[in-house]
Amino acid sequence: MKTLLPAAAAAAFLAYQAPAFAEDLEFLLINDSSADLVEFNVSPASSSNWEDNLMDGGYLAPGYEIGVVIADGATTCVYDIRGSFDDGSEAEDYGLDLCDLGEYTFTD
């Protein structure tokens, strides 16, 4: 059974388990696609690997949004984003300046 993440729990769920740093980045993740977002990865652009799935058993339904906090202690603002959907589709975006982003929307 899938679990739709309530906004408050999801914000805490999506935050990396690390103490707060001045470099913490926050943005709104919006699913404006037609499928459930079932996997969400954010990695520093300098990394050759994707970080862990931040949805980890949950999902973000179409038309919903959630706050994301990246509290990894890194001093970079430039990250790559990947989303996987329950219909098998994927979306990747590279070199995003999350310090200035404010929000990110997945669309079809």
Rank of each mutant, 00 (worst) to 15 (best):
E51K: 06
L4E: 06
A10M: 00
G73Q: 10
A11Q: 13
C77Y: 14
E90S: 14
L101T: 10
A61K: 14
D24K: 00
S47G: 00
A45P: 01
D52V: 12
C77A: 14
A22E: 07
L29Y: 03
E51I: 01
G73S: 08
G95N: 08
L101I: 03
A71E: 11
Y64K: 15
D97G: 03
G102K: 08
I70Q: 10
R82F: 11
F85V: 00
C77L: 06
N41E: 13
D100N: 09
I66L: 15
D100R: 12
Q17I: 08
M1F: 12
E51D: 14
D24A: 01
A61S: 09
N31Q: 00
I30F: 01
E92V: 15
Y94H: 03
V69M: 13
K2P: 14
L101Y: 09
A20K: 05
A91S: 11
E65R: 15
L14A: 00
E103V: 04
D80C: 08
W50M: 06
D97A: 05
F40Q: 03
A12N: 05
D100W: 11
S84L: 14
Y79S: 06
D56W: 09
A10W: 01
L96Y: 05
D36F: 09
A11L: 13
N31R: 02
A18H: 11
F27G: 00
D86V: 01
F21K: 04
E39T: 02
N49C: 07
L28N: 12
V38C: 08
N31Y: 03
V78A: 13
C99G: 05
G102M: 06
G63P: 03
E39P: 00
E65T: 12
G58N: 15
Y64H: 11
D52H: 04
Y79G: 11
N53H: 08
E92D: 07
L14P: 01
D93G: 02
G73R: 11
Y16N: 10
